[in-house]
């Protein structure tokens, strides 16, 4: 597993309200744990810098909980058992802890949050908001997550076309975000990343500015995941950089 990441304020905003957090852990020796990766991306919102506080706080809360419940637990104990909290519950709990923390510490602030826990080539994904996860293959980008946005619902219902959604005055309205308080419904996804494929996490500052064909071309021709992320951010800026831009790319090497 090789990962790259990049974030940029873009061309039109004063602050970068996106937050990223990346953890990779590898082990060798007798019966090693599978390669472990934790990739978190959050896109904050709210006035007076509360967006950046919300996104940073949320990524830290989620990382803390998952590392404790999954990675540290696995280091302490070789076999898995029914006493451990299942991964899906850990993810949902982690995002809800972040939700409560943001609601308390940053009233009026909120954030999207996408988190991918990688165990070997298997991705466990939790999502709230409109940041996205894509499976990247040489053939193109397959969107794994669903946006919690008003326009996405309208497209689903056939009330808007994809093209109308892109320019809709309410395209930024989310119906679910971390920091809204209460019990948050969190989407979870399980996806095996086949050899030679990658997992892309990104904020709307990327997917809203650069089309899928262009993103596929950039990723498949880049030398490394890091070079791909830098090029993706550059392409979003080239297209106008209307919002903060963030990308994390995790590549599962092809079979030799």
């Amino acid at each position: 597993m090789r990962a790259g990441w990049s974030t940029d304020v873009g061309r039109q905003r004063q602050h970068n309200e996106d937050a990223l957090l990346v953890v990779e852990a590898n082990q060798d020796g007798d019966s090693p744990l599978p390669p472990f990766g934790l990739f978190i991306l959050a896109d904050g919102m709210g006035g007076h810098r509360s967006g950046e506080v919300a996104s940073a706080l949320a990524t830290r809360m989620v990382a803390r909980h998952i590392l404790q419940q999954v990675y540290l637990a696995a280091l302490y104990q070789r076999d898995h058992d029914a006493e451990q909290l299942p991964l899906k519950e850990v993810l949902v709990e982690a995002v809800n802890l972040a939700n409560a923390a943001v609601a308390t510490a940053v009233p009026g602030g909120g954030t999207t949050l996408i988190c991918a826990l990688m165990l070997g080539a298997q991705a466990y994904i939790a999502n709230v908001g409109d940041s996205r996860a894509y499976l990247v293959s040489p053939e193109g980008l397959e969107q794994i997550t669903r946006d919690h946005s008003l326009v996405d619902r309208l497209v689903e219902l056939g009330q808007l076309t994809e093209a109308q959604a892109v320019n809709h005055p309410q395209k930024n309205v989310l119906y679910r975000a971390v920091g809204q308080g209460g019990v948050l419904e969190v989407d979870t996804f399980i996806h095996a990343i086949p050899p030679g494929h990658s997992l892309l996490l990104c904020s709307d500052g990327l997917w809203g500015m650069v089309d899928r064909e262009e993103m596929t071309r950039i990723i498949t021709t880049a030398r490394s995941p890091q070079a791909a992320c830098d090029a993706l951010v550059a392409a979003a800026n080239q297209a106008g950089g209307k919002d903060n831009i963030s990308a994390i790319l995790v590549e599962v090497p092809g079979e030799l």
Binding site: P34, P86, K88
Partner: peptide
């Protein structure tokens, strides 16, 4: 499946486990 092992137990639960590591994914 490609990703998971599903199985029931007399402990009343249905488990989904990670195919490659055995980590419980949901119950």
């Amino acid at each position: 499946t490609k990703e998971l092992v599903y199985v029931g137990s007399q402990d009343w639960c249905v488990y989904a486990l990670d195919l490659r590591s055995g980590w419980a994914v949901w119950r």
